[in-house]
Design a protein around this nucleic acid. Sequence first.
DNA 1: CATACACATAC
RNA 2: AUUGUAUGUGUAUG
Length: 592
Amino acid sequence: MKGNKGSDTPGVDEKTMRTDILNKDFKKVLKEVKNQFQHYTPNMVRRVHIPKDNGETRPLGIPTIVDRVVQECIRSVLEPICEAQFFEHSYGFRQWRSTEHALSRVTDVVQKTGYHWVIEGDISKFFDTVNHTKLIKILWSFGIQDRRILMMIKAMLQSGVMDEIIKSDLGTPQGGIISPLLANVYLTPFDNFVTREYERKKLRKEYSSGQRSLILRGLSGKPRIKPIPCYLIRYADDWVVVTNSKKNAEKLVYKYEKYLRETLKLTLSITKTKITNVRSKAIEFLGYKYKQVRGKAEKGYISRTKPIEDKLDKKIIELLKDIKMLKKCKDTETLISDINIINSKIRGLINYYQVTTWGSESMKKYNQRVRWAAYRAIRRRLGAKSAKGKNKKVDWMRANLCTNLIELHSNYTTTLPTLKYKEHVIGVTDLAFIKFQQPTLFNQMETPFTKEGRERHLTRLRKRPKQFRLDFIFGADAMATRRLLANKKKKKRLYNFEFYLNRAYAFNRDKGKCRICGKEIAPHEIETHHVNPNLTTELVNRVSNLASLHASCHNDMHNLTLTETLLLAKGYTTTSVKKILNFRNKLAMNSL
DNA sequence: CATACACATAC
RNA sequence: AUUGUAUGUGUAUG
Ligand SMILES: Nc1ncnc2c1ncn2[C@H]1C[C@H](O)[C@@H](COP(=O)(O)OP(=O)(O)OP(=O)(O)O)O1
């Protein structure tokens, strides 16, 4: 939560993460949060309207920091329970799943089944129309039946909006920490409704299409109509169903609309819901366009994906505006840092669209405009003569000669607008440096909620597992924490809530070893030293200012009567002594 | 190897 | 000051 951009944006009270959690006393914070769980009365949410992409506005509901903490507590226990019951091809708001997975699922289904009639569904004002009582019932059906938890969730949902009179029993705040989880819970019955007749039944024989008899016999022996073949891919309230004919698509839309309206009290925007033959027209999903086109070989179709043009258009216009602002930079240093920001914006766009087969073609349309805008803006900033003569500061340089983004730029000899400053050659990166990456399907076994799933994840990313269970060593009831709390003569300013959090990260960084003697530290002897205790409250407890030590090493380091020779006599190695002296030096220097 | 902080995208 | 969940990239520090 503290890493969130909004952590210093208050709700209806004035409280922020920095002033009211991190800088506060550890025990006080714990107590305040625990108190919330006695009789939970959440604050109202603060209403802020932000512009949406389509010109309308989005009403945010910003909870107070304490309410965010409480919501996070509840989210973290509910999530594993819910996850086990979510639909496998729901990709929104879920760990380790992404838009890329959703997109590749769509193309994969279409390619392998040959079905090319697609329904694009859109639920109006989704978060704002979630029905509270229905939601609680669905949670119950998920097996979440603890009255206390359900009452707290109900309270969160009903805590009205500041400055708005009407208290309704509709909606979960856009901005609430549990809202995305609740949204997926709420649509799970819909997932089941869509998939239970066909997709779920066919799980074992995935994709084997069309060759079964038209009539199946149910248990009663009564002939049953063969279910309409259909596959659902959902991302939050945005969903796509792939089926085999226009007629069937129409039937399904009819059924789905009725179900959503009658059972979930949601409106399927009929005007926005479209039925498309992806062999003749593209669908739009998650910022991507997708259609099938004839392949080079006579028969068969291949997938083509690309960015939605007008969305990309808008982004590029924004980008060009930013680039033009470069000419207003105060000095060369801010110019460089602004170029880096421009570069990360360009990289961001490339990164999102590199999974599209036609991404490169789309980017090339804007390429030249962006390059020249950048060149002119930098030249304007530094004056016309900076682009003339032998040692031009502003110049076109080959990408592989730039000193920034080396890993990327070294693969290209395209010229880029560059700025030379000291030893650096800073290039404005190019939209055309987009390289198609085949989007991957989500591996259903790879989830953070099982031991095996976590292992698969680590091996795929070629990472090593975390060595320590930080919550065991540093949790509120852990030995190291109790010992610290028992220590009476500690300075309040240093030992605030942030310290309790960050000492765990420092310990992990130090690999559980003492920064003085290099030996492992057992849980009962961990102490965390402030390298420079005189920094401001915001800086003292940064991980970079903390060092994990043995309690004894820590003591000896602070005990100035122990001279170098006495330390050696005590059995410290020469390198350990050096480290002790180093720490002492830093303390002495900074206390001046 | 780790964390923290910028940017991007989806909803 | 524009909140949240998720994904991805880059830079910096040890
Ligand atoms: N920036 C955001 N912050 C918080 N929640 C968001 C944000 N963007 C989207 N959401 C959540 C709340 C939305 O109800 C839900 C679906 O988003 P979206 O389809 O874009 O709008 P919407 O369903 O609220 O209105 P509509 O589709 O009628 O325009 O995702």
